[in-house]
Computed example of a mutant assay.
Amino acid sequence: MVRLEYVSRLQVVSGKGGTGKTTVAAALALALATEGKRTLLVEVEGRQGIAQLFETEALPYEERKIAVASGGGEVFALAIDAERALLDYLQMFYKLGSAGRALKKIGAIDFATTIAPGVRDVLLTGKACEAVRRRDKQGRYVYDYVVMDAPPTGRITRFLNVNDEVAGLARIGPIHNQAQAVMRVLKSPETAVHLVTLLEEMPVQETADGVAELRAADLPVGNAIVNMVRPHLLDEDAVHDAANGRRAAVTKALTAAGVTGAAGLVGPLLEQAAEHAQRVELEREQRKALNTLELGAYELPMLSEGVDLAGLYQLAKELRKQGAGS
């Protein structure tokens, strides 16, 4: 398993829908916040998935503390709203104040964030990058890490690279400067884009496609994070016997273990074991496919009770054990 020597301050988490990327992003934020660190967990899709995971009310457009990590670290969360981000942007560069609010009332803000090409994504990524760069009065970073629960793999490269397109359209002025500042963060070692996958053919293939697109755009690829890994219940010999339907060997093993009526149990057990053996083999093939991508890798177990707040802390602990944040 490859390890990154430098832990990027902006950790972008993407993945195919259904792989649990929001859960992984939340667990990563907790893992990075240990030992007194401060992490900001950012949501950009407006689904309020972070609030649900941390069992709290819907997040407003403000940075709010939602959890305390082991060692006294803190996790803050922010659900970025594109309209509010645009108002911030207008105030920052043009000092519009009440005029900006007037634009919202007449629908200009909604128009800009839904119709104007790329504006929405520029605002979302820009807000996250601002949090990465922000310092307090003593010159220290306000947040040690920012973790972004980003769009799915099929959209992540365009989402992160849209600032280049805007910079090309606006060659001078504040919009150009903003886009360039954002891209300096996104295309630097300060950023790592992690892709969440399952040990299944479609998610692994989408991960491979995503890695290729990110690398072609010169965006920094981080780790593959394999989520919901199920335990292997049989050793290699048992898997081999089950896969080949070796009835005699299984019957002998059951009898040796003191199981009565072993012969009658063999059929159903072999059927279940064969299904397990098939899954083990498919997962082995997908691991090989992931290895060809030459990425670092983490693996998170499937939680039998589902993901609740306690489960998030368990996953964060597992990430720490595997070296996340160290």
Score class of each variant (00 low, 15 high):
residue 157 T to D: 06
residue 190 E to N: 07
residue 170 A to L: 14
residue 171 R to Q: 14
residue 98 S to Y: 10
residue 45 E to S: 06
residue 123 L to Q: 08
residue 143 Y to F: 15
residue 167 A to C: 07
residue 108 A to M: 14
residue 272 Q to I: 00
residue 284 R to H: 12
residue 141 Y to E: 11
residue 301 P to Q: 09
residue 153 T to W: 02
residue 27 A to C: 10
residue 275 E to Y: 10
residue 111 F to D: 07
residue 46 G to D: 01
residue 98 S to W: 10
residue 219 L to D: 15
residue 24 V to M: 01
residue 133 R to L: 15
residue 54 F to R: 03
residue 299 E to A: 11
residue 76 F to S: 11
residue 35 E to W: 07
residue 3 R to S: 13
residue 10 L to P: 08
residue 51 A to F: 11
residue 255 T to G: 07
residue 168 G to K: 12
residue 92 M to A: 10
residue 158 R to V: 04
residue 77 A to G: 10
residue 260 T to M: 11
residue 315 L to C: 07
residue 234 L to A: 11
residue 189 P to L: 01
residue 296 G to W: 08
residue 152 P to Y: 06
residue 280 V to R: 09
residue 198 L to V: 04
residue 324 A to D: 09
residue 287 R to E: 12
residue 86 L to M: 13
residue 142 V to W: 15
residue 280 V to I: 03
residue 177 N to P: 00
residue 247 R to H: 15
residue 57 E to Y: 13
residue 95 K to S: 14
residue 322 Q to T: 04
residue 282 L to H: 13
residue 183 M to L: 08
residue 58 A to S: 08
residue 194 H to W: 11
residue 292 T to L: 05
residue 230 R to D: 05
residue 120 R to M: 08
residue 262 A to S: 11
residue 221 V to D: 02
residue 9 R to I: 01
residue 298 Y to R: 09
residue 238 A to G: 10
residue 17 G to H: 06
residue 38 R to S: 14
residue 104 K to I: 00
residue 287 R to L: 14
residue 300 L to M: 08
residue 303 L to D: 15
residue 137 K to T: 09
residue 88 D to T: 01
residue 56 T to V: 14
residue 162 V to Q: 14
residue 250 V to S: 07
residue 84 R to D: 09
residue 261 G to K: 06
residue 322 Q to G: 04
residue 307 V to G: 08
residue 43 E to Q: 05
residue 272 Q to Y: 14
residue 221 V to S: 02
residue 158 R to Y: 12
residue 231 P to W: 15
residue 314 Q to I: 00
residue 281 E to V: 00
residue 28 L to T: 10
residue 101 R to W: 15
residue 176 H to S: 00
residue 267 G to V: 02
residue 227 N to I: 03
residue 228 M to V: 00
residue 190 E to R: 15
residue 66 I to N: 10
residue 88 D to P: 03
residue 33 A to K: 04
residue 70 S to L: 11
residue 43 E to S: 06
residue 1 M to R: 15
residue 189 P to F: 06
residue 102 A to Q: 12
residue 198 L to Y: 12
residue 146 V to S: 06
residue 72 G to H: 15
residue 199 L to Q: 05
residue 169 L to G: 00
residue 32 L to H: 09
residue 119 V to E: 05
residue 87 L to Q: 04
residue 275 E to H: 11
residue 118 G to D: 10
residue 103 L to Q: 03
residue 232 H to S: 12
residue 288 K to Q: 11
